[in-house]
């Protein structure tokens, strides 16, 4: 089981052994996840990992095939449970003929104590555009408006699906700052991204999703150490292979025999050679270790590993240490923010 709040009200989000299929595709496979009040959670994973499906269950758009989803202890498919929820339209799906101010007012009208249209737009630098039709906005302006819509009702939980996809660097930072401000006001924020950078900039807790499962769940630093790998390439003679394989903090993910004789004549050696690809948690440490072990390597290259590569290693590893870390960080947050709820929404 995942982390539980003790003695407080129901968690903000409680996903309990949820499975969701689309025809033959299993989008979510027995996923459990609990988000407490005031957390800022990043859902990280490659496209098709199940992040969007997970959010659609929490926002009441879809029903789980098995398991339960609770939003502040209530059923997210019931409209009143969504009073404390703010989401964004997918991609840039705004009705093109409506004016910016009209869309904001439409959404605000659903909530008991919304921001004024001006305030919502002002947070995202859109106040001058209130009279514009949304179809005339740039891609970045649409994205910012979409996030403004998520916040206008002053929800206690904000769900953001890829909030900054397609934004330039400056617009992205404006948006991040607005989200940090809103989180600092006491709200809970869950966002998905496949940018590691975005998760690093915003999230306090990171949940890595892949192939419909939670692969890792923990404090930012813990999960980053699992995910943020470097890819180190080097060529070594066969006799050095056991030494390289035994080095801590790196694993060999690929070995290629070096066929090019002319190249090896420039570095005369009696041995056959292997071109190795390693995934290292700390590339600097790995290189120091290689030098320290007097490995006769050549053609050293260090590259950033893609998230997809990192996820592959996660799928191979067992993610239990990450989960344990999640329990800790979630409990810390709950302790810091006691709740006054009386209702217990758990079964």
């Amino acid at each position: 089981m995942s982390a539980r709040t003790e003695g407080a009200g129901p968690p903000v989000v409680e996903v309990d052994h949820v499975t969701r299929r689309f025809g033959p595709v299993v989008a979510l496979d027995d996923v459990s996840l609990t988000v407490g009040e005031g957390e800022l959670v990043g859902l990280l994973g490659p496209n098709g990992a199940g992040k969007t499906t997970l959010l659609s269950l929490v926002s009441g758009l879809r029903k789980a095939d098995a398991g339960t989803v609770r939003l502040f202890g209530g059923d997210p498919r019931v409209a009143s449970a969504r009073l404390t929820l703010g989401t964004t339209p997918q991609e840039t799906g705004l009705p093109p003929t409506l004016r910016v101010g009209e869309v904001v007012a439409l959404v605000a009208g659903h909530y008991p104590a919304p921001m004024s249209t001006h305030e919502a737009l002002d947070r995202f630098g859109l106040a001058d555009l209130a009279r514009r039709q949304t179809g005339g906005l740039s891609g970045g302006q649409k994205r910012r408006l979409a996030v403004a819509l998520a916040l206008v009702g002053r929800p206690r939980l904000v769900l953001l699906d890829e909030p900054t996809t397609g934004l330039d660097v400056e617009a992205r930072h404006v948006l991040w700052q607005a989200l940090r401000d809103y989180h600092a006001d006491g709200a809970t924020v869950v966002l998905t991204s496949h940018y590691l950078e975005e998760i690093e900039a915003l999230a306090h807790r990171v949940v890595v999703v892949g192939q419909g499962r939670v692969l890792a769940d923990g404090a930012l630093a813990d999960v980053l150490s699992l995910v943020a790998r470097r890819r180190v390439l080097l060529t070594v003679p066969d006799r050095a292979l056991p030494t390289v394989r035994s080095l801590a903090g790196a694993e060999v993910v690929d070995e290629q025999r070096v066929e090019n004789r002319s190249l090896s004549e420039r570095y005369p050696t009696q041995d056959d050679e292997q071109r190795l690809t390693l995934l290292a948690e700390d590339a600097d440490e790995l290189v120091r270790a290689l030098v320290g072990a007097r490995v006769p390597f050549r053609d050293l290259e260090v590259r950033g590993a893609s998230l997809e590569e990192a996820f592959l290693t996660l799928t191979a590893d067992q993610p239990d240490e990450g989960r344990a870390a999640a329990g800790r960080s979630a409990d810390d947050l709950h302790d810091a923010r006691p709740l006054a709820h009386a209702t217990e929404g758990e079964r």
């Binding site: 404390t84 916040l151 002053r154 006491g186």
Partner: peptide
Amino acid sequence: TTTAARASARTGRPART
């Protein structure tokens, strides 16, 4: 928004749409 977001957090969720 500080006050509003916190206030609604303390008073519990408003039950009606």
